[in-house]
């Protein structure tokens, strides 16, 4: 069996492990290129304009609850909360989550109502590697806030 065929027969998980192993063994360093087109800050900005228009976000109001180091990039716990009284005329309309190192930056959009009581939610997300998680909150009065945090992702024990 040719090497190419053998590789094709591997699942993505196996291939990742193999690639990780190869990088560790080769002291000269194999550069993994081309296979994964990662998102970046510019792509986040573009995705954001589509969702909320041209309003420039300012820092503050948002608290992100993320691990500093995540061992398993398949399920990284993420919690987000926004400081708001959540009354009928002053509440958080939406929170958009992005990850700048994933193949596509968007993660989820959360839409709150005054009935939510507080603008807080948590879930689990996939992360392709060490990167920044960005949260953008849209308030009912049109103000937009932003927060970000870096998460180091360990894959296959190679460190990150």
């Amino acid at each position: 069996m040719s090497q190419k065929k053998a590789l094709a027969a591997l699942s993505r998980r196996e291939a990742l492990l193999l690639a990780a192993g190869a990088t560790m063994v080769a002291a000269g360093g194999i550069v993994l290129t081309g296979s994964r087109a990662n998102a970046d800050a510019k792509m986040i900005d573009e995705a954001l304009v589509k969702l909320i228009g041209d309003t420039k976000p300012v820092d503050g109001k948002i608290t992100l609850d993320l691990p500093q180091i995540a061992e398993n990039g398949n399920t990284v716990p993420i919690g987000v909360s926004v400081d708001s009284p959540m009354t009928a005329d002053n509440y958080v309309k939406a929170v958009h989550l992005f990850a700048d190192g994933n193949p596509t930056p968007a993660v989820a959009s959360l839409y709150f109502t005054p009935m939510s009581g507080k603008a807080e939610a948590s879930t689990r997300m996939r992360m392709a590697g060490t990167q920044n998680v960005v949260a953008v909150a849209e308030m009912s009065d049109g103000k937009v806030f932003r927060a970000s945090q870096e998460v180091k992702v360990t894959i296959g024990g190679c460190g990150g």
Partner: peptide
């Protein structure tokens, strides 16, 4: 929804993990 009124909604992308978990609040 609660008694037919919207409490919360969310759009998910492929970056949400398998067996999706979500915790939220409601008044």
């Amino acid at each position: 929804t609660f008694n037919g009124k919207s409490v919360f909604s969310s759009d998910w992308q492929p970056a949400i993990s398998a067996n999706p978990y979500m915790s939220i609040f409601a008044k």
